[in-house]
Design a protein around this nucleic acid. Structure first.
Lengths: 235, 235
DNA sequence: ACATTCACGTGTACGTTGTACACGCCCCCG
DNA sequence: CGGGGGCGTGTACAACGTACACGTGAATGT
């Protein structure tokens, strides 16, 4: 701590703090971090505050802040109206797009009840899409969660894959393979896991996965279709 | 800190420390915690050590310990030999069983490359099950990861559901509903999210979800089957 | 038999995290 | 013009992972 004379008398206090500004800063920070992790101190610095405690007046706790971040991303998900399958497919695809923009969303969405306004809007629209079928409440939600489960699962895999690449400066799959080579060579020499070794040494394993998000989504929609029975309304 | 005289001269040092004992203690601890979280200090106490530092000789770091825990659970997963579909279905079901015993496994398995001996054995067996089809390396692994993704995704949902129940002593769905009631009632009165509100008030939503793990697994296997083409070998 | 080494478990310490608490400033209303 | 009250701040603490150096007991070399 220096003498008084060294400080600006009035550190030019930036914009006013607000819940929106804090949430926006936290989301920007999470987007920049590979693991999507965020500390209250970092958010405080980002909004120009000198102490993490300033945030607590607006968001209550870190968990509260995260709830707000998550709901904000739910706001990027849209459920097109219309035939049930296009609606649920739209839910899946726009969810996937949102998750690609904010991979941390997948990690966090799993762990909290979707009760924010944007999350409720998503669920409401998705439930509406299934109106007109003779389904129980559990079946309706089950269908939606099947789709969202796929979205979040794929997002989580994406998040962790990116994080792993970063871990030791691995820029590409090739580098990662390089790092694991001695270990894999030892295994190869011991002759165990022959199928796995064959897979490792197959260069075509780097091809884009044919089991893409959308393809699996279609499989799930096929399965859901089988449970809907005949259309009994406008769905 | 008391005087010397108050201590046993030789605190009856328990069993020897060992990697196996440490990993077993960590797994037991994780199984007991709702979120499956574990601290080095808790593990140390569990194995009878007075300081967390004693573990570091055996596991290198907390991440190392977690890698070992994860691989241990991979050891509970079995892939029956035989026709490809029964193999992959067995992989899914035994994985689901393992994840139900150790929900934290789902959270951790997502985030690390499956390179431990048990994980490699699982992948090797699963790859073997797909021998005889004319698939690229990427397609083979894609099929396996489709199944495992479903396993881990379902496990994560299970973990978070259990954790949420615990959060404020919610023992049952009814209690949870009770806690959310004022919030939901406000929403109801505002007339928004009508479909969601209808779902909330439908008692049948507590029925066991018809989109069970195995049902969705079968949908995925149907989808995979469509990509396999004609059998060209023993698969 | 003794001396030496070394693996092991320990204690202390540091940096980072979330957050409780009390303080001082400044603006607004009376 | 005088007193609140909201707002941002600083200090402080417990819990975490883990770096480092130490003492001790058993194994080893001569």
């Amino acid at each position: 701590m220096g003498l008084v004379w060294f400080d600006d008398p009035a550190p030019p206090r930036g914009e006013q703090l607000s819940r929106e500004r804090i949430v926006a800063a936290a989301i920007a920070l999470a987007d920049e971090d590979v693991r999507g992790e965020v500390t209250m101190r970092a958010v405080a610095a980002r909004v120009g505050s000198s102490t993490p405690m300033s945030l607590y007046r607006y968001v209550g706790s870190k968990d509260g802040l995260i709830d707000l971040m998550v709901d904000e991303v739910y706001g990027e998900i849209t459920v097109p109206a219309g035939e049930w399958r296009t609606s649920l497919r739209g839910l899946g695809c726009s969810g996937w797009a949102a998750v690609q923009r904010h991979p941390w969303f997948a990690r966090l969405a799993f762990s909290r009840p979707p009760l924010g306004p944007h999350a409720l809007a998503v669920y409401d629209a998705a439930l509406a899409a299934l109106d007109g079928f003779d389904l129980s409440a559990a079946e309706r939600m089950g269908a939606i969660n099947t789709v969202l489960g796929h979205v979040f699962g794929s997002g989580l895999a994406l998040l962790e894959e990116r994080a792993m690449r970063e871990r030791a400066g691995f820029a590409s799959d090739a580098d990662l393979t390089e790092a694991a080579r001695p270990y894999l060579q030892r295994i190869t020499q011991e002759g165990r896991y022959p199928h796995f070794i064959r897979w490792v040494n197959d260069p075509s394993r780097h091809d884009p996965a044919p089991q893409s998000f959308e393809r699996i989504l279609d499989w799930l929609l096929d399965g859901i279709a089988g449970t809907l029975g005949p259309v009994s309304g406008p769905g």
